[in-house]
């Protein structure tokens, strides 16, 4: 039965992990890149649009895990949105395949200002193991200016959360 389980969960301890600490330095570095307009307009909330530009889907698994009960991304004011037109941040994975380059550029153009670009995963940082292939550009930075790189193959949900919280933190300053 569903209802007894739901009722029980009202009185039990949450299964959500405590929030990770924001890495020192990351927030300061990001704050310097933010415009004053962004701070007043967005407040303590960010809408994120994820774009896969050639990942092996390992990054997507971990980005998806951010939404589960244990990481509960939305408690921080961070949420994934279905359209770049609703987004403040593009969270991009993969080494940027040549076949995805135009789609990424168009998605970026659809995202309203102020906006930030986060490259998540070793592939997005510089192409990772796929560097040098005829079919990849070798990192998101080859097409667009990147504001934050979250390393890892794939980055764990905790690493992703630390990076995204640094963005929120930087915006507050």
């Amino acid at each position: 039965m569903l209802w007894p389980k739901l009722a029980k969960s009202l009185f039990s301890r949450p299964e959500t992990d405590p929030a990770p600490a924001v890495p020192l330095g990351a927030a300061e570095a990001l704050a310097a890149r933010f415009q004053a307009a962004a701070q007043t307009r967005l407040g303590r909330s960010l809408a994120i649009r994820q774009v896969d530009c050639g990942s092996c889907n390992g990054c997507e698994l971990e980005v998806n895990a951010l939404g589960n009960v244990v990481y509960d991304l939305e408690r921080f004011g961070l949420r994934f949105v279905a359209s770049p037109r609703h987004a403040d941040v593009l969270l991009v994975t993969g080494p940027l395949t040549r076949n995805m380059r135009e789609a990424l550029l168009r998605t970026w153009e659809c995202t309203p200002e102020p906006k930030w670009l986060v490259a998540a995963g070793d592939c997005a940082a510089d192409g990772g193991v796929f560097k040098g292939s005829y079919a990849v550009e070798g990192g998101i930075g080859r097409a667009l200016e990147v504001d934050l790189v979250i390393p890892g193959c794939p980055p764990t949900p905790t690493q992703l959360l630390e990076g995204l919280l640094a963005l929120l933190e930087a915006q507050k300053r």
Binding site: N99, A103, V129, F130, S133, A135
Partner: peptide
């Protein structure tokens, strides 16, 4: 859209080195 040229990257490598492409 996700074509990364994975097979091409494996050529000329030892199985031990190429295994990381199979894993991805």
């Amino acid at each position: 859209y996700l074509h990364k040229g994975t097979l091409g990257l494996m050529l000329g490598k030892s199985p031990r080195l190429a295994a990381r492409f199979a894993a991805r």
